[in-house]
Nucleic acid binder design. Structure first.
Lengths: 386, 386
DNA sequence: ATGAAAGCGCTAACAG
DNA sequence: CTGTTAGCGCTTTCAT
């Protein structure tokens, strides 16, 4: 009946708890000599309670639970039985304290509500579950006080590593973490230090594909809506755009400075729409911008893709549900999350830290959907979507 | 120079760390008699290190840091100075162990990538920061194994409370938490037990508004796309729809069983579009469904709102960025998160648990945007959006 | 007001 | 192979 183990790979719950829950008082009634402070101790069970009930030492309970192979199967069975019956769960706070490892990874994002992140958090969490880790999620909401707090919280909770997916973290904060020898992983901006991993995104590949796709659709007046200029990843995208245009002998029709928000996209479209000899295609530095562009185009009866082709960047989940579905450069969030998580795991398991940064590469690729079409002919035939 | 305090309400970082970081070795060099194990101890500072440097006892350091008012200002200043210089951060793992309170709230959601949740997580995190809490986020991804794991993780980490925002949690898991006296908060489905809070959503109000809005636009053939039938909150929405229709003497034109996903919305539109005497308006049980409906309508050249009015439910952030912006019933996610967080805080701070459940109420309201319009006239004048 | 010391629940030496 | 015991870093009596 109680043959199943409560802990370890089998994730099943103890079958005994319901009985206990149903009214069976078990604290203090058969308390052994080891209980010198019954009243003050946890109202529930601890390792000593298990030990005394299974008539073994706490060390044996610990070993059993941690699957140390040298424990006598007989004893182990007795221990598991009690663990199972009492629904005992080891206190990971105590475990962390003694082991010095919290089994928690910090994940710092700029804003959880930014659709770029949920997919990342989800993948991170999946990996955490698989590896018996927890994730401590904090968002900086672009506020330097909040960034400080994020870092402080990570340090106080003694996380085993931090993925910094917020763009624009002050160096002093990074030093705080690095000083405490916490493994760190960054996107694009990782400093060359031990215990630091850096994920290098190949922006050029996807953006070149986007530009060439537009050119193939006979667009020649192609605009770009950039991200915030202080953001390294945004600059890289812009540069990739300019280079890709130059490669095929095209001049950017217009470069609007955006800010990676929907509102920025709206403003950008206003500017684009107002331009004489209006661009026929826009490449946006991220999908939120593209969403803003599309929304404002709709308000102005500018049809997409008939009058204007739009390409995004990131491929957030929503991109495919836009109307029309958004053609965009995919920067796979699950892949990014996996690389980040693995980088942290590698660092945690490494005995001797490396001399410097570890680099990881990630590619980007165009995903074709329905927000791009042949460039409108100048006052001759009209190309509608059907 | 080091006048600022490192800890407490002032969130500023110690100014001394950079110097230390820049090469000043401080472990072991002035280690006092209290250091009996320098090599094995934390490579960084702990409370004893602070104590010995400030020439006070660890108790005094602890009291200072915790702002116990009885400490001598002279001593306190000395302590703060050292804390500041060394960039000491108390180890909250140890704190949790001794205090028995982890200052972590669990947050169980069904899927982080479901756009309904990010806003909730963000608000929860904001409140957590304000109250010196951490959040332990887990997602069940509709998998019972993962649900078990979620609960197990919460218990092992000794969370101080759990907000269960996943719909359809098995009773046995809830018992596990409740058995360990963990405060719990639910939406709609909270059992009547001590330390349980329940947030009752008034679905009817918003849905009635939606129905009356459509009726006022002269829609008479109104369809409803439901959520998964096993979901209590989805059933409540459906019932609210039926009642609201009945109130004004209308029969539902069609009720399609959906599943709260975009794909379900797509299927629903296929069914709606294929019906002879097609409904002119659809009310969807959530926004994801509405997005699916709109997407598929686009694919079929069914214009929204000209040919079909669409209303969603939830008012996820994206709703306003859809094309056209989606008219929807708002169920404020920030408000929900705040109620949930406060409920947990109230429970944690309560000395004696109440006899039974605590109830909280939350309303819903229609938000008008552009996905609804006058019902198309039967083969007479056409109402276009301009 | 301050310090010494006893633990919080667990793990890991070290003995047996 | 098992048990005893000394802590992990902190808070909190209990004396002083």
């Amino acid at each position: 009946m109680h043959a199943e183990c409560t802990l370890g790979s089998s994730a099943s719950f103890p079958s005994g708890v319901c009985g206990i829950y149903a009214g069976h008082r078990f604290v203090g009634e058969t308390y052994s000599h080891e209980c010198y402070h019954a009243g003050l101790r946890s109202q529930l069970m601890d390792i000593r309670e298990i030990a005394s009930r299974a008539k073994v030492s706490t060390a044996t309970v610990s070993r059993t639970i941690n699957r140390v192979p040298t424990v006598d199967p007989q004893l182990a069975k007795r221990v598991w039985k009690v663990v199972d019956e009492l629904g005992y769960y080891p206190n990971s706070v105590a475990r962390s304290l003694v082991s010095g490892r919290s089994r928690v990874f910090g994940l710092i994002v700029s804003e959880i509500t930014n659709p770029f992140f949920p997919e990342i958090v989800q993948t991170f969490e999946n990996l955490a579950v698989q590896n018996n880790y927890e994730i401590l999620l904090t968002s900086t909401v672009y506020d330097s006080k909040r960034m400080e707090l994020s870092v402080r919280r990570m340090i106080e909770r003694r996380v085993d590593g931090v993925a910094i997916l917020t763009f624009g973290m002050e160096d002093s904060l990074i030093e705080h973490l690095h000083f405490r020898k916490v493994p760190l992983v960054f996107v694009d901006v990782g400093p060359n230090l031990p215990r630091v991993s850096n994920i290098c995104i190949n922006y050029k590949n996807g953006i070149r594909q986007a530009v060439q796709h537009l050119a193939a659709l006979r667009h020649t007046r192609i605009a770009f809506v950039s991200g915030p200029p202080h953001l390294k990843s945004a600059l890289a995208r812009r540069r990739a755009f300019e280079e890709s245009m130059e490669e095929i002998g095209l001049d950017p029709a217009l470069i609007v400075v955006g800010d990676h928000t929907v509102e920025g996209g709206i403003r950008a479209l206003v500017e684009i729409a107002g331009k004489r000899n209006r661009p026929t295609a826009v490449l946006c530095s991220n999908d939120m911008t593209a969403i803003g562009v599309m929304g404002e185009a709709y308000q102005r009866d500018l049809e997409i893709p008939r009058h204007l082709s739009v390409v995004g960047f990131d491929d957030i989940r929503l991109a495919q549900f836009m109307i029309p579905p958004l053609t965009t450069v995919q920067m796979s969030q699950p892949e990014l999350a996996k690389i980040a998580f693995d980088a942290l795991m590698n660092e945690v398991e490494r005995d001797e830290p490396l001399r410097g940064r570890t680099d990881y590469q990630m590619n980007t690729n165009l995903v074709l959907r329905q927000s791009t079409a042949l460039a409108p002919q100048r006052a001759t035939t009209r190309h509608s979507k059907s």
